[in-house]
Simulated assay, not measured.
Amino acid sequence: MNKCKIGLLIGAILIGILSVNACAQGGGGYTISGRIKGIGNTKVFLTNKPYTFTSAFKVIIYDSCFSKDDYFVFSGKLDDLKFLSIEVPSVSKSRFSFIGENKDIKIESQKDAIHAGKIVGSPQTTYYNYYLDSIYRPTKRNDNRIIDSLAALKDSAKSMELVNAYERMINRRNEAILYQLISEHPDSYGLLSEFNEISTFIPKDTAQKYYSVFSKKLRQTELGKRLNYELFAYDNLIKIGKKIPDFSLPDTVQRLQGLSAFKGKYVLLDFWASWCGPCLEELPHLKNIYNQYQTKGFEIVGISLDTQKKSWIESIKRNDILWTNLSDLKGRAGKVAQLLKIDAIPMKFLVGPDSKLLLINPTLADIEGFLSTLP
């Protein structure tokens, strides 16, 4: 089954050599100032956009100011390390992303290439940029050249075999190197972010080992706490035969609806989004299942990972989706998406009349097979 990934996989590649200062956010705040040559006097935004993100990412504008003769300044206090971005939408679609710290940070750039600016005062960003520019990207380019050359072989069967073997080798290499990188730089928020993107693709015990190497202060960040839940608590909380924790989310007219409202019925929690092709492709089949078994106490509750209400509502109407639909419009950061560790969609959970989990990530055939046994 095709799925829409809602995180971008960026793996560790080689061994870094720079150090990163401890990630503690001290008593002082931050000052982010600088010059973007050519923007003149216009509005500048401070947002939460990381280096890369998907449609399931909820964009937040933290602050804004007016530049004067190309210069801008922001000040405040962060309660956590996090990715930030400087944007000037009136003059460019480009942005400058970095890791926010409670430090005196200075940025220099120009309006035609805001993303290519320079930054000083953020040790976290300095190491992460080094990692991307000198470690990840060069090795990724080399890997892509090798894969392309293997894929171009005339013998298609042999070509596929060699490509798959090389990709497996890359994964083994990156796993080993990632552990060494984390061991050398346990305070790197950038590496924690990279680890977050691959943690579901490596064995659970390996991921737990890697996570435990990060510094205590980094593990106490918002991202660190979420990873702790996913790696150590999730499997004990969300499993077949156990009651799923109740939750409530807004529906399309902002009424809160909870899972408990469907007690006594078989409920399929269907995670989807308006931008998810595989989700939309399976709708006709899902509608057939709904129509066939609704009279037997079967309900579907759609939970969207959209972040734009208009897109969500329009997709429901355009695709004639009749079952209950909920969303907090926070994408992957939504409370239920995090509770159930949604890292790709479509994703489904079948819940019984007693609120106990019956199926996790079933195919539509699995769902039909189960429902066909109902009296």
Rank of each mutant, 00 (worst) to 15 (best):
M1G: 05
I6F: 08
L8N: 11
G11C: 08
L14H: 00
I17E: 15
S19D: 11
G26V: 15
G28L: 07
G29K: 09
R35P: 05
I39S: 03
F45M: 13
L46A: 15
T47V: 13
T52P: 00
F53C: 12
V59G: 03
I60V: 15
I61W: 04
Y62I: 05
D63N: 10
S67A: 04
K68N: 05
D69N: 11
S75Q: 13
D79A: 11
L81D: 01
F83P: 00
F83M: 03
S90L: 10
V91L: 14
S92N: 11
F96M: 06
S97C: 09
S97A: 14
F98I: 03
N102P: 08
K103Y: 07
D104Q: 09
K111S: 09
D112A: 05
K118N: 14
V120L: 06
Y127C: 12
Y127T: 08
N129K: 15
Y131R: 06
P138K: 03
P138Y: 04
K140E: 08
K140T: 08
D148P: 02
D148Q: 05
A151F: 02
A152R: 02
S156I: 11
S156H: 06
S156Q: 07
A157V: 15
S159E: 00
M160T: 04
E161T: 10
N164C: 12
M169L: 08
R172V: 01
I182L: 10
S183N: 14
P186H: 07
G190I: 05
F195V: 10
T206F: 15
S215H: 00
S215M: 01
K216I: 01
L218C: 10
R219H: 03
L223W: 06
K225T: 15
L227I: 11
A233R: 02
Y234K: 11
L237W: 00
T252I: 15
V253A: 05
V253Q: 15
L256P: 00
A261G: 01
A261P: 00
F262Y: 14
F271R: 01
W272I: 10
A273G: 04
G277S: 06
P278C: 12
P284L: 04
H285C: 07
Q294N: 13
Q294F: 13
F298I: 05
E299N: 07
V301Q: 02
V301W: 05
G302M: 12
S304L: 07
S304A: 14
D306Q: 06
S311A: 14
W312L: 05
W312E: 09
I313S: 04
R318F: 00
N319M: 06
N319P: 02
I321S: 07
L322H: 12
N325S: 15
S327F: 10
D328L: 12
A337Q: 14
I345L: 14
I345T: 09
M347G: 09
K348Q: 14
F349T: 09
L357W: 07
L364C: 02
A365L: 10
F370P: 01
L371P: 03
S372I: 05
P375Y: 04
P375W: 01
P375E: 05
